[in-house]
Design a binder for these strands. Structure first.
Length: 572
RNA sequence: UGCCCGGUCGUCCAAUGGCAGGACAGCUGACUCUGGAUCAGUCGAUGGGGGUUCGAGUCCUCCCCGGGCAACCA
């Protein structure tokens, strides 16, 4: 997936492909499927998309695109109990945002309910399905266990005519839920539990978000999915590893039904990330119990959360490319996702200065009331981004962390008597530390070197540290939200459970942050780098005109913090 | 433990019987008006035993470890 719509060249013969693309290439070479490639993404509209889904989307859309094929969006809406249009709209919006294009091929498994029903009748007539009157509990009991064979339902040999009649009456709503099911007649002793007369239909007297109250029975996943693939002409039906045991059943239906096409199911490992959870159930619990502000909380691994955090579609796609495709259960280091977004934003985000935890600096030898404007480059990685003017005067803000009274040897920032450069401005030297009654440093009185304007001293004098700053008189104030991993542990589900591993410091809200003047003009969803802090995103939800709220998308790499953590805060 | 799938650097992915390679992370250094970026270097792996072969990560076999399957969920 890329932003432009030009299809890439098909992968070269000797190109090293993942196992799925290799298979697609082999199928093409063998002339299978009439030379077509057709994939699909089949979400169930019962929740929001998360980063795990983006791998499936990128893979399915990417394969179609690379091999000159087509990509469908199909909602797997076979369970009205859990599904809702609210999710349909959100899912479409997220997929579109990610850059995957299903053109006009937006389908629903519910579109096929009629065909599926006819095929069910076909199976009954062929003696390959029957209406079963066992209760839910009995079905489970009769099925046996993984080590003990099941036993046949007493209805297994019900005459076809009778099953046909019952199925029709199930459909029209004559029976209460649970009274009957339609089951395939396969093998109650099969080593694969999925093949022990699986259910095709269950009674659910419940309206569906698309078919209304037309149906009182709904097909099960196994019966609906492969046939939907067949109807749409899907050539490669990619799913996750847990469906591996379902494949024989997928194939059984395809072989026993007069389907127009024979799709093949291919399983791959789902994407897992450290420091997060991916199951819909757990994500829902985080929202419901208020551990996060909603599905779009910037700490959530949902697409909506990532969007609001400031991630870009291309960075998310990049993750899928970097992760690759295989059949081994794996958990990708969250640092890889962070690398993807830093790599992009380093190239595209303008640099600006923001002081998050302000400490006042007075330049004692700078004329009172004077303001001068200095030129600052917007992005050293991209000169075409140009420059802007930033103010400088007698009163400035610098970062509290950038001053230390008892500084270790490797501390290159401001210390009593020390000299540093203010980015794009002047060298300053700390002459005096002002404290309040409690002994807190509240102000620094410094002198500047007028000859160092622009950041270089004509005498060739070097300084080790360069600090960002904001001129006090023109500063904008803003709220800045800093985020950390939602969980403290790389594998939150281990041990006491994911809720016990929530990171209490995952959100820190800073008020009264000082921004350089141009930042009041930022628009919602703009991305910038706050120099020496990280990449920030203007929150489209809580920002107000002239009062932006920033989310920290990701920090910059912080070698100093690492050094300090290693040596201990007091060490030199 | 019945069946199925899978075990390669810390992590993720390659090597398709012929020199185990890349990326991220880590570490070292260079450079730097962001302790950013960049560049260079470096650490580091085939779960174990047998076998086939001139040659095995790859094939066979046994063992060990991990995952999946017994919803009227998907």
């Amino acid at each position: 997936m890329t932003d432009d719509r030009t299809p890439p060249a098909a992968p070269a013969d000797d190109e090293n492909l993942d196992f799925i693309r290799s298979r697609v290439r082999a199928d093409l070479a063998a002339g299978r499927n009439g030379g077509r490639v057709h994939t699909r993404f089949p979400p169930e509209p019962n929740g929001y998309l998360h980063i795990g889904h983006t791998k499936a989307i990128a893979l399915n859309f990417g394969i179609a695109r690379e091999f000159g094929g087509k990509f469908n969006l199909r909602f797997d809406d076979t369970n009205p109990e859990k599904e809702d249009v609210e999710y349909v709209d959100a899912i479409k919006d997220d997929i579109r945002w990610l850059g995957a294009d299903w053109e006009d091929r937006e389908y629903y498994a519910s579109d096929y309910f009629g065909q599926l029903y006819e095929w069910a009748q076909h199976l009954i007539r062929q003696g390959k399905a029957y209406v079963c009157s066992l209760t839910e509990e009995q079905v489970r009991e009769w099925r046996g266990t993984v080590k003990v064979a099941g036993r046949p339902s007493p209805d297994r040999d019900r005459p076809a005519a009778e099953s046909l009649d019952l199925l029709e009456r199930m459909r029209t709503g004559e029976f209460p839920e649970g009274a009957y099911t339609l089951r395939a007649k396969i093998d109650m002793a099969h080593a694969n539990m999925k093949m022990r007369d699986p259910l095709l239909y269950r009674i659910k007297r419940m309206p569906h978000h698309r078919t209304g109250s037309a149906w009182n029975i709904y097909p099960m996943y196994d019966y609906a999915h492969g046939q939907s693939d067949a109807i749409e002409g899907i050539t490669h039906s990619i799913c996750t590893l847990e469906f591996e045991v379902n494949r024989p059943l997928y194939d059984w239906f395809i072989e026993n039904l007069p389907v127009p096409h024979r799709p093949q199911q291919i399983e791959m490992a789902r994407l897992n990330l450290t420091y997060t959870v991916m199951s819909k159930r757990k994500l829902l619990q985080l929202v419901k119990e208020g551990h996060v502000s909603g599905w779009d909380d910037p700490r959530m691994p949902t697409v909506r959360g990532l969007r609001r955090r400031g991630y870009t579609p291309s960075a998310i796609r990049q993750l899928s490319e970097r992760v690759g495709v295989a059949k081994r259960n794996s958990t990708v280091d969250y640092a890889l996702l962070e690398w993807c977004i830093r790599d992009e934003l380093n190239r595209t985000a303008d640099r600006v200065m923001a002081v998050l935890r302000p400490l006042k600096v007075v330049i004692t030898n700078y004329p009172e009331g004077q303001v001068e404007w200095l030129e600052a480059e917007n992005n050293p990685e991209d000169p075409s981004r140009g420059t802007r003017q930033i103010p400088f005067s007698r009163e400035l803000w610098i970062e509290q962390d950038d001053f230390r009274e008892d500084a270790p040897a490797k501390f290159f920032r401001l210390k009593p008597g020390g000299e540093v450069r203010l980015k794009h401005a002047y060298f300053i030297r700390c002459q005096e530390v002002v404290k309040d009654a409690a002994g807190n440093v509240v102000e620094l009185r410094c002198t500047y070197d007028p000859a160092s304007r622009g950041g270089e001293s004509p005498d060739g004098r070097k300084v080790k540290g360069t600090l960002h700053f904001v001129e006090a008189g023109h500063a904008h104030e803003a709220e800045v939200r800093l985020y950390d991993h939602l969980f403290r542990e790389p594998f939150p589900e281990e041990g006491a459970g994911f809720l016990a591993n929530l990171n209490p410091g995952s959100l820190e809200i800073l008020e009264g942050c000082k921004l350089e003047p141009g930042l009041g003009q930022l628009q919602a969803a703009d991305r910038v780098q706050f120099m020496r802090h990280g990449y920030f995103f203007v929150d489209p939800v809580d920002s107000r005109p002239g009062r932006p709220v920033f989310h920290r998308t990701v920090t910059l790499k912080d070698t100093w913090a690492k050094l300090e953590a290693k040596d201990g805060p007091a060490a030199g």
